[in-house]
Design a protein around this nucleic acid. Structure first.
Length: 285
DNA sequence: CACCAGGCAAGCC
DNA sequence: GGCTTGCATGGT
């Protein structure tokens, strides 16, 4: 991981496994906007940055060396060797093609509470709809952030959401998920669910802690463990992944055991390449 | 009109 | 434990 600080921000270079389209469009994160110039504006960690692709690297605007080292290196998982992971998991033509297609994916280290709420919203929703609902949630209940002459909004705090009533979320038009959001915020606030200890728990215990939340099931818990806590043996199974696994001739009930055996401790990375390729490329024969 | 979207809880057995 | 059904909303 190599970078330089300049008057515009941070220039990241020499990293093959980094592509802003792959990172943001692969369905792990919902608070970004693709600008007309092809750059991406990201809202995360209470900050707003803009990332654009240059000839041999990427320019991160609205940051500096301190913030980059303290926040964004961790958020973008920049110290991990993705070339090595991709080589290890590319065991057949299906996963090889998916890795080639989404070669620049990185699994982000997102905020646990934001990830819990976002993936509660994600259930039985399309990604564009999820982005709309999350944006409305932030605009209505998040703290204002100024960037580029525009107003942006941080993700609402747990305290703020825990103080609301289900009816306060009617403006989100998120359907039956409104009560799940309130339940999650209240259980995190009163300590029924401890998001701080999950990172130190083994996979199954960490998952059990998340399943205490009304509206969090197996798939949403797996997404939270993978996208917020870096539990890379987690393998979320949704409708797209089920489609891919049909090509491996694996029955739905056997997907987890098969993938943990086949892809090993890096199953979560494989899942994300497969999901992105299946959804974006019309991979079918 | 039907069917689907990064599923889940509740009610059965 | 597994299987079935209802579920809010918007897009195609």
């Amino acid at each position: 991981m190599k970078f330089k600080e300049n008057e515009q921000g941070i220039y990241l270079y020499g990293e093959k496994s980094f592509n802003i389209t792959h990172i943001f469009e692969c369905g792990q994160c919902f608070r970004f906007k693709r600008e007309e110039d092809g750059s991406y504006t990201l809202n995360a960690c209470g900050r707003v940055i803009n990332i654009s692709r240059l000839e041999n690297g990427f320019l991160f605007k609205n940051t500096n060396a301190d913030d980059f080292l303290n926040i964004w290196v961790n958020y973008f998982d920049l110290e991990r060797d993705y070339e090595k992971i991709k080589t290890e998991i590319a065991k057949d033509d299906i996963i090889k093609k998916a890795v080639d297609f989404g070669y620049g994916i990185r699994l982000l280290r997102q905020d646990p509470f934001e990830t819990v709420i976002s993936f509660i919203i994600s259930q039985r929703n399309s990604i564009p709809k999820i982005k709309k609902v999350v944006a409305l949630l932030c605009e209505n209940f998040g703290k204002e952030i100024d960037f580029g002459g525009k107003k942006h909004y941080a993700f609402p705090t747990c305290d703020t959401l825990a103080s609301l009533d289900v009816s306060d979320l009617a403006i989100l038009k998120c359907g039956y998920r409104d009560k799940y959001i309130i339940d999650a915020a209240k259980k995190v606030k009163n300590g029924t669910v401890n998001l701080n200890k999950i990172g130190n728990l083994p996979y199954s215990e960490a998952k059990a802690e998340l399943l205490k939340i009304y509206g969090v099931g197996s798939k949403v818990a797996d997404c939270i463990l993978l996208f917020a806590y870096g539990k890379y043996n987690s393998f979320p199974v949704d409708t797209w992944v089920k489609k891919v696994m049909l090509r491996y001739n694996v029955a739905e009930k056997d997907i987890h055991s098969f993938c943990n055996e086949y892809f090993g401790e890096n199953a979560g990375f494989a899942q994300q390449y497969l999901f992105y390729c299946e959804r974006e490329s019309g991979f079918d024969s």
